[in-house]
Design a binder for these strands. Sequence first.
DNA 1: CCTAAACAATTGACAACATCAACCTTTGAT
DNA 2: ATCAAAGGTTGATGTTGTCAATTGTTTAGG
Lengths: 167, 167
Amino acid sequence: MSGTSEGQMERGGKPAEVRRRSGVGPSVDALGQDLAHEAWALLFEVMHAHMRNFPALAAEFELSPVQAHVVRQLGEGPLAMSTLATYLSCDASNVTGLVDRMEVRGLVERRSSEHDRRVKMLVLTEAGAALRERLLERLAEPPAVIANMPEGDLKSLRDIMRRARER
Amino acid sequence: MSGTSEGQMERGGKPAEVRRRSGVGPSVDALGQDLAHEAWALLFEVMHAHMRNFPALAAEFELSPVQAHVVRQLGEGPLAMSTLATYLSCDASNVTGLVDRMEVRGLVERRSSEHDRRVKMLVLTEAGAALRERLLERLAEPPAVIANMPEGDLKSLRDIMRRARER
DNA sequence: CCTAAACAATTGACAACATCAACCTTTGAT
DNA sequence: ATCAAAGGTTGATGTTGTCAATTGTTTAGG
């Protein structure tokens, strides 16, 4: 959509995290970037297969990928359609049809908000909640790459990711 | 923004079920499983957050997500349509239209195989290869979660993933 | 109070993506 | 030579996505 040339400005410039050691050869910035690049490339490579497997996983529950995502998100409680659209980063008009189909299948329910009658809140039906339970269980199963990791690696990985999410 | 009051409840509470181990009981197996589950859950979350904006990333190059994936896969050399279908885990008939559109845009070329005239090999055009170059560069940019990691975490992550890949 | 702007959801038109079934050509085996 | 199997295309159909326009409901201003 927007220009084809400015894509990397924001991302690349952001880590103003200047880890400034005393001048040792090449800028530590560049070194840190290389490190991040390599770690990211590896992570991407290792996880790629499993991410692409998601459609098939959703299909185990006769859900499309997006529907699975909705079921997953909808567990906490009622969500407005527009909020869901934001979560899915898609147009609101898209959510209408999406929810239509899921409603037909008895997974979710539209419920008018009392405070604001423009808003329709989405809730999982009982069947939807049951499905969600099974889905989450299935999603929680770590793939072989993870399951086969030595305990030390698992601990480190967990801690690293915990820290990362709090940032 | 969202009319409701919830949305952030779950994020902190997810690993709650994992926590119950304090004393003697659980075998190392069970502990390892819980650990793997938690590490996987965290990793899954991070990767999914990244996958969510893959469409937007592809759009920076005026590519659909699938097209971006094709451009990426097609770098190594000529690929038969059926092979591509396998890579994409989709039906062969789907690839026809996909490639049609990309061919119209001058990104790829169908080339008949000499050994087997049923087969059509796909190659990137020069423009396609150039686009791929830029795309790969963009894909290599680590997302904020990675870019903001302290150097120690990055090193550990890199090493863990290196080991994982070799398994 | 009344009107205008803003917002939530829907509708309709349209494109990409996905599947299935049917088809044509080519290949390879019998 | 025949026939089954494989590679690719076509056609029908459904889901997902966008955008533009519409309906109904707040909310703000005059």
